[in-house]
């Protein structure tokens, strides 16, 4: 048994696998299948200040080796998260990353202030949701606004602050450097890539929102490339995600520079995916006689 533990921004994770925000709700439904304590952490559904109802259906479409979604940040709002969901999650012996997805800087600051007085372990600031009109993506696509929101949320909380980046930009490394300079403790990437499918029989987009975020194995090589570039550009930890479906995928993303790995669409294919990925990582490391997963972080030897 290899040592799978990692430490990010001073927070200890028993293993580097974290279900990504949005796919896992607040864990209640998956607890029917396996104990949440098996997970390194849980990134909770993006929260806004008040309840959001989300977009009209259909909100999902199958794509080659992946899927599009446009849920539109349906969530019960920060107060219900803090009063109902967070206390339950904090009993599960796993790291809780509260995902913030406000549509204005003030909204994100207020949410961060509210979370600051809780026992949540980390905050993940989503500046990259592609599915809401004044959504986080607007902040995440320019260095100036990304830095501004990061610095204001930074001042609102002493919790470790992870900023979740959009891949729908010209240079993700420039954005990463901006949020690092503005006080982010870590970055997570990649959020979904903006995509679209059309039903050729009806001439209508499959998603009612017309466009949505692409995830799943189709985006994995993009995630590996962006994690590698960002890890080489910043000194803060990188949490990688994007199409990870196996232990080898998680190892690959860590070799590219990720200190931990989030798992999204793979959970729809197999609800046990996070647990299987942890087992497969263990097996891989044992076979290679690598005693700690920390040894592989950023260990790629580029040509």
């Amino acid at each position: 048994m290899a040592d799978l533990s990692v430490k990010i921004c001073g927070v200890d994770f028993k293993n580097p696998i974290i279900p990504a925000s949005g796919v896992f709700g607040y864990g209640r439904e998956y607890e029917e299948l396996f104990p949440l304590s098996k997970l390194g952490g849980i990134a909770t559904k993006g929260t806004t200040i008040t309840q959001r109802t989300g977009n009209l259906s259909p909100r999902i479409a199958e794509t080659p080796s992946g899927m599009l979604n446009s849920v539109g940040l349906q969530n019960p709002g920060i107060d219900k998260f803090i009063d109902v969901e967070l206390p339950n999650l904090l009993t599960k012996d796993t790291v809780i990353l509260a995902n913030i997805a406000g549509s204005t800087i003030d909204e994100c600051v207020t949410i961060a202030e509210k979370l600051d007085s809780t026992d949540v372990h980390m905050i993940e600031l989503n500046i990259s949701c592609p599915n809401v009109k004044q959504g986080g993506a607007a902040f995440g696509t320019s260095c100036e606004t990304a830095a501004e929101i990061t610095s204001k949320v930074r001042k609102a909380t002493s919790k470790p602050l992870i900023v979740k980046l959009s891949p729908n930009v010209t240079s993700i490394t420039d954005i990463a450097k901006s949020v690092e300079a503005a006080g982010a403790d870590a970055v997570s990437l990649i959020n979904t890539l903006l995509g679209m499918r059309i039903d050729v029989n009806t001439g209508r987009p499959i998603l009612k929102n017309n466009v949505g975020g692409l995830s799943g194995p189709a985006v994995f090589p993009v995630a590996v490339r962006m994690v590698w570039q960002v890890a080489n550009a910043v000194d803060i930890p990188v949490i990688g995600m994007g199409g990870v479906a196996s232990g080898k995928d998680a190892i690959e993303l860590m070799m590219a520079g990720a200190s931990a790995v989030q798992v999204g669409a793979a959970i729809f294919t197999d609800p046990f995916a996070p647990v299987k990925i942890i087992d497969e990582m263990n097996e891989f490391l044992d076979n290679k006689n690598i005693s700690s997963v920390k040894e592989i972080i950023g260990s790629v030897k580029p040509w």
Partner: peptide
Amino acid sequence: EERMGCGIGACLVCAC
């Protein structure tokens, strides 16, 4: 009926 993701109420995709 609705297009569905997780099937167990976590992902909030199949809204009606």
